[in-house]
């Protein structure tokens, strides 16, 4: 096989690998992609498309209290319907009251970005945190974390603008990205925005019960940061 034919075959194999799974490619395919701008472009398109797909799939959400109904039915099937009904209604009411709470304040996005810049040395750490630990940690904020197969390098509580939130650092196909999630503290949240400082930039997205920020160096686009947030964190609709 000639060199040209060999290269063509490698390109075809890499394209096939990307279409099968743009997040996980073999080292061989990865090397071919790194040499081919068209394949890099295809990968970016596929990752962005996957973010949109994930958002569309998320449009279908369970009614409040699903987990409690499942638990009641699976574990306490013999309990009276009355008891189950009361328990479920308490859960639904609590969820509704929780969602009705208003939300937070304005220099918040900048404070989040400052926190990431101040703790940028955490980007060098790689604790290889188990996804189950992230899921359990974020569940305390009512946030569902979806394990997309990205390596979680860092997970810790953080103090930003007087709120204790969660700081995650992930290795993604776009690069190393930090996320900060701050719980609602009852004040109005600023609108979704993009901001930058030094070599970092950020996308800030308010949601009903928490403020989300994604942060990376400027080689990662804002669209990629938004796509990652949509993929990784499931909660209420953005308040934009």
């Amino acid at each position: 096989m000639s060199t040209t034919e060999n290269t063509s075959e490698q390109t075809r194999a890499a394209r096939h690998a990307l279409l099968a799974d743009p997040r996980r490619v073999s080292p061989e395919a990865g090397a071919t992609i790194s040499r081919d701008p068209a394949l890099q472009q295809l990968r970016r398109q596929l990752l962005e498309a996957d973010g949109r797909l994930a958002q569309a799939f998320d449009e279908v959400r369970p009614a409040p209290g699903l987990a409690e109904r499942i638990i009641l039915r699976a574990r306490y099937r013999r309990r009276s319907l009355w008891a189950a009904g009361v328990a479920a209604s308490v859960v639904i009411t609590a969820a509704a009251l929780f969602m009705l709470k208003p939300a937070a304040d304005s220099p918040l996005a900048l404070a989040m970005l400052d926190h990431v810049i101040e703790s940028k040395y955490e980007l060098d750490n790689d604790g290889n945190v188990a996804p189950a630990r992230v899921q359990a940690s974020l569940a305390t904020f009512g946030v569902e974390y979806r394990d997309m197969g990205y390596r979680v390098r860092h997970l810790a509580d953080c103090l930003v603008a007087g709120r204790i939130g969660k700081h995650l650092v992930l290795s993604t196909p776009s690069g190393i990205v930090s996320f900060i999630i701050l719980p609602d503290n009852g004040q109005a949240l600023p609108k979704a925005q993009k901001l930058g400082k030094g070599q970092f930039h950020a996308v800030f997205v308010p949601r009903p019960r928490a403020a989300y920020g994604a942060f990376a160096e400027k080689n990662v686009s804002a669209a990629e940061l938004e796509g990652l947030m949509q993929q990784l964190f499931v909660q209420g609709t953005a308040q934009t």
């Binding site: 959400r61 369970p62 638990i71 699976a74 630990r133 359990a136 940690s137 499931v234």
Partner: peptide, 25 residues
């Protein structure tokens, strides 16, 4: 840190809360 316990009602509850939304979808 969450410890995935041996099978128990509490563990079942934890798993239901963690996965029910994505399984519903």
């Amino acid at each position: 840190m969450l410890k995935w316990l041996r099978p128990s009602p509490a563990h079942f509850d934890q798993v239901v809360r963690a996965y029910s939304a994505e399984l519903f979808r």
